[in-house]
Design a protein around this nucleic acid. Structure first.
Lengths: 242, 242
DNA sequence: CGTTTGATTGACACGAGTCAACACCAGTGG
DNA sequence: CCACTGGTGTTGACTCGTGTCAATCAAACG
């Protein structure tokens, strides 16, 4: 069950066979959601946390005037709302971009993990910490990087994160989000997203047909983005870490 | 010792006398820093976490091209880097804005808390969760709010946070940060910060002489900022004083 | 007192938003 | 099977919020 999660957690440090076995047989319900379905709403007090199994999910907030800001993307293996285990009331919603399978992990089960499997617990805490690090990096981007750099940076980040769970062979991955989603994530208008995308294509930094994204020269993209993969604590960047 | 911390944690829920006593006699060294001194550096692996006792601190990142982004402000009672207890290597620096007193709490002591005082531990985890919520709110601002709204929002946030620790009587508090700091926090140039500040003053939303900030009509400021204090999980939002 | 740091102002440039079409599917239902 | 439809991507013209550059001022400081 939830193989990408195991894969990712193991990239932080080995888990015992027992821990892996526990994760595999953990009774979590897998749900299938349609395009743009919102499966956790702001204000909810969920009794479970969600792991992305397949597809792409994102957390977001809506402003009074209807504007939307996407706070984070979640690829397979990511816990979307592990913190709802702690802070009951959701202060943002979670929705899927494109089709998506989500595993719902009941909070008591997480409780059991924290009481029984210290190494697994540590891996989960690490994951939360990395989630925070991604937030910080996004904030830097929003405040101080141009639209062009920000988008390049996002593509770099997604590549590294998808590689960890084996979903980006040959520097290529499926980009399941819409241009409007990208805009809401990067703080841009859809029109501008489109133009920046074209610029990136024109300069040969990305190749995309709308569904698939290929990065011909990762080093170069990293350079224009000012991307340093250290904050992801994963392999696949330039610098060895973890 | 570290009274503002106790004050804040108690605002989340009562602590036992024993827990308070423990915090009071906890052997934490208090350090005094000068204006703009950086006391935790990116790349450091500190063996302690820092609590602001007096003044204002902030976490920040520097980009390759020298630009700076401030990720968070920390008022008295805030843990700046509780997460360094978990994730050893700092991916950002921490510095003071204006004069500042900082208490250094050794990690082993935090370990002891988690093993001995469940209610206190829970309060600390809450604090971390709220820290995350503040991050999310900032991100919304950076992506989707105008400079004007963002600044108004920041002033609202600081008012509520400072009230919790008793440092904002009569909707007035000391603004210890420089205009350039504000700019780096809000993703603006200092020039623009200055202009927006003047606009806020002109519209009577704030009164400031450079050191002190007074908010004559909090309700009105909240409205233009689109500020909803719920994310801070503190009292003093809609209702006057704490 | 010079020196420095932070606040303020003005002129100008440019990145990004807005508005408004239009093109291009993939579904859907008749 | 094809005409609708709604969502998405693409384009152009125009506007406007912010950044940049460059002075000037004021206050803190050694």
């Amino acid at each position: 069950m939830i193989n990408p999660l195991i894969q990712k957690l193991e990239s932080y440090g080995a888990l015992s066979d027992e821990e892996k076995a526990f994760l595999k047989r953990a009774p979590s319900e897998i749900r299938d959601y349609r395009v743009h379905e919102e499966f956790v709403r702001e204000g909810d007090c969920p009794g479970e946390s969600c792991v992305v199994v397949e597809g792409l999910a994102f957390r977001f907030k809506i402003l009074p005037d209807g504007k939307r800001q996407i706070l984070a993307f979640h690829v397979p293996g990511d816990f979307c709302d592990l913190h709802s285990f702690l802070l009951k009331r959701m202060d943002h919603g979670i929705a899927v971009a494109g089709r998506c399978k989500i595993a719902a992990v009941p909070h008591p089960l997480i409780q059991e993990i924290t009481e029984t499997y210290p190494r697994l617990t540590r891996a989960l805490m690490w994951d939360v910490a990395i989630d925070g690090a991604i937030f910080r990096e996004w904030m830097v981007g929003m405040g101080r990087r141009s639209a062009y750099q920000r988008m390049a940076h996002l593509f770099c980040e997604l590549l590294v994160r998808l590689k960890v769970v084996g979903l980006a062979e040959n520097d290529t991955y499926e980009l399941l989000s819409t241009q409007s989603d990208l805009g809401d994530a990067l703080g841009l208008s859809t029109v501008h997203v489109n133009r920046v995308l074209q610029q990136l294509r024109a300069e040969g930094l990305i190749v995309s047909d709308g569904k698939t994204l290929m990065i011909p020269d990762f080093e170069k993209l990293k350079e224009v983005a000012g991307f340093d993969p250290a904050y992801l604590h994963a392999r696949g960047g330039a610098s060895p870490s973890s």
